[in-house]
């Protein structure tokens, strides 16, 4: 193994010396061994990551292997990948968590430690309530919450999690008295059904079967664009003017990865994301494929980082 790596290293160096601007050739040199894709979380994020690595492997000369490195809200995986060589053999299936975990104070570096490869898709938190409460839209819920004289209980995935930040951005617009109840992934819908909380802000896929059975109702989605499925208004249209909170997921590599390697990976990501089989599976998992090239993805990461930093400061969760 070591011998092979050494050999390819020597080879690559020789090539580099001989053909300095030879981009096309350099591209053909990559990859010469399997590429590791670090997965930071479990649940549907992990499953989508595995499907993506499968699809990318199909188009690649070498397999892309999904390796789970969970823990610390993403901090463990980010730290691992950041410490590896910037040669494109270690990429991260990342998300806005790079910003949340940084502002929580659990990472010594921020998003700038990584080079963007591509955005793969988005997930949008939705606001759900029990149908039996009789709240047909966001404004009715807000009015009822003001009247009930006690704080509104809102179920989120964890304090400082993306759903928490999205909820805070939403309810701050109405100046409501809110208690955020942190549940692990997946439990908030059950707590909402049992009536222990008034509202749950989670991913749409988690509510799917309860929406269709009519037990739960979606009031709005926090993104700027309405959801593809279901007749759900955006929170902006429902009365929370200017709200636009969307979680993206994409791929990044350690800072300093050669541009030709990044563009090779970007092409793989594009092919995989735009393949029909990926889209089918992703939609079943509540994930909306939405490819963005490296440069646009980089700009998005930077803008969102500023927004998340501000929101976390407002919530008193910014430890920077």
């Amino acid at each position: 193994m070591t011998f092979c790596n050494l050999k390819s290293l020597v080879l690559a160096n020789t090539m580099g010396v001989l053909l300095v601007p030879g981009m096309a050739l350099a591209q053909a040199d990559f990859p010469t061994k399997p590429i590791e894709m670090t997965i930071l979380f479990g649940g549907s994020a992990q499953t989508v990551g595995q499907v993506l690595s499968d699809e990318m492997s199909r188009a690649s000369a070498q397999p892309i292997v999904a390796v789970s490195r969970p823990g610390g809200g993403g901090a463990v995986g980010y730290s691992y990948a950041q410490a590896t060589a910037a040669d494109g053999y270690n990429i991260v299936w990342n998300s806005n968590s790079i910003s949340t975990v940084y502002y929580q104070g659990n990472l010594p570096f921020n998003y700038e430690a990584f080079t963007p490869i591509a955005q793969i898709g988005v997930e949008v938190p939705v606001v759900a309530v029990q149908s039996s409460r009789g709240w047909d839209n966001l404004e009715e819920m807000v009015a009822a919450a003001r009247e009930q004289g006690q704080p509104l209980r809102v179920g989120v995935s964890g304090l400082g999690s993306f759903t928490h930040i999205a909820s805070a951005a939403l309810f701050d617009k109405f100046d409501l008295d809110v208690i955020y109840v942190p549940y692990g992934e997946g439990r908030a819908p059950a707590e909402l059904l049992s009536g222990r909380i008034d509202v749950a802000v989670q991913w749409q896929s988690q509510f799917q079967s309860h929406l269709r059975s009519g037990d739960l109702l979606l009031l709005c989605s926090t993104g700027a664009q309405p959801l593809e499925h279901g007749d759900v208004p955006t929170c902006h249209d429902a009365g929370a003017e200017g709200l636009d909170i969307t979680m993206w997921r994409g791929l990044v590599a350690p800072e300093g990865t050669p541009p030709e390697v990044v563009s090779y990976l970007e092409d793989l990501a594009r092919t995989a994301t735009e393949s029909g089989s990926f889209a089918d599976i992703a939609v079943n998992l509540g994930f909306t494929p939405a490819f963005l090239p490296a440069d646009e993805f980089g700009e998005l990461i930077a803008t969102d980082d500023a927004i998340i930093g501000q929101l976390m400061t407002d919530l008193g969760l910014n430890n920077r």
Binding site: G71, A75, V76
Partner: peptide, 20 residues
């Protein structure tokens, strides 16, 4: 490691690996 509610790191002495 990270506490399950606030995500505050406990007894990690700044070591990222101990966060898990």
């Amino acid at each position: 490691g990270q506490d399950p509610i606030d995500g505050v790191s406990r007894l990690t002495f700044g070591n990222v690996n101990l966060l898990q």
